[in-house]
Design a protein around this nucleic acid. Structure first.
Lengths: 128, 128
DNA sequence: CGCCTAATTAGACATTCATCTAATCAAGCG
DNA sequence: CGCTTGATTAGATGAATGTCTAATTAGGCG
């Protein structure tokens, strides 16, 4: 299950010290922007934001699709679609175990996006 | 100029201790997700990501529209449209000074988004 | 005033996207 | 095997979005 998807971007590996290259340090290249925009697009939806949060907060760090679906007033195919978007962006991964499919967060990508948005002055309290 | 726009969301003021409520701590409410998604949608575009970065990196922390427009192979109205999206999301603000209009970053909103995406384990090195 | 440049607004158009229903795939169980 | 439940895929549809051209607003200058 975790390998049937199209892993579009290997963003996590691209920037090992992602904390050192925020948006405000040097202008983003066209290539970087083209690579990052789809990741933000993947989380730029209220349903997907909640899915991400539900998965991240769930016991054991993973959640079953049936648990996720029941948290929304949307059909199962719609939830499945949103999970696919998140998975293709590399934000989550999944595995089938018997009847159920479980999803968990890939923290590396989230960390990279978080670091990108952090303003420069946030580094102020380094020696505190 | 900074007041002719529609200030849709006052996100910055909503969550003073935004650093303490990342996505992975407790499930996002529907309301929070509906409020946050438009902010991510605003930055989920390669042109707007580069605009944000160009503004943030520019000398003095602000940039003229003409400087920004010349960095893209897009028409002025298109750049103006993207700037408006960013401004309505509260990510940037602007002021007209004579002939030119200058834009700068509102770091509060970016900081909030950054904190939201930070995974829990990023807090590990607190006492270092 | 009249003209020029900077920037935004208005409106059109093609593309992308979120959602649904219907159909299909996967696994367990009688 | 046939049925049931969980999950995804396929395809359709209405709404949102990015881009452009044309028109408009705003300010400076001869």
């Amino acid at each position: 299950m975790s390998n049937h998807g199209t892993a579009l971007i290997d963003v996590a590996a691209a920037e090992p010290g992602a904390c050192c290259a925020p948006l405000a340090c040097e202008p983003l290249s066209t290539g970087e922007a083209d690579e990052l925009a789809p990741l933000f697009k993947a989380i730029a939806d209220p349903v997907r934001l909640r899915l991400l949060s539900l998965i991240a907060c769930h016991d054991g760090g993973e959640a079953c699709v049936c648990d996720l679906t029941s948290a929304f007033e949307l059909t199962a195919p719609t939830i499945s679609h949103h999970l696919k978007v998140l998975r293709q962006a590399g934000l989550i991964d999944c595995e089938r175990r018997g009847t159920w499919v479980y999803y968990w967060i890939n923290p590396t990508v989230l960390t990279r996006l978080s670091a990108l948005l952090r303003p420069r002055q946030a580094f102020g309290a380094v020696e505190a």
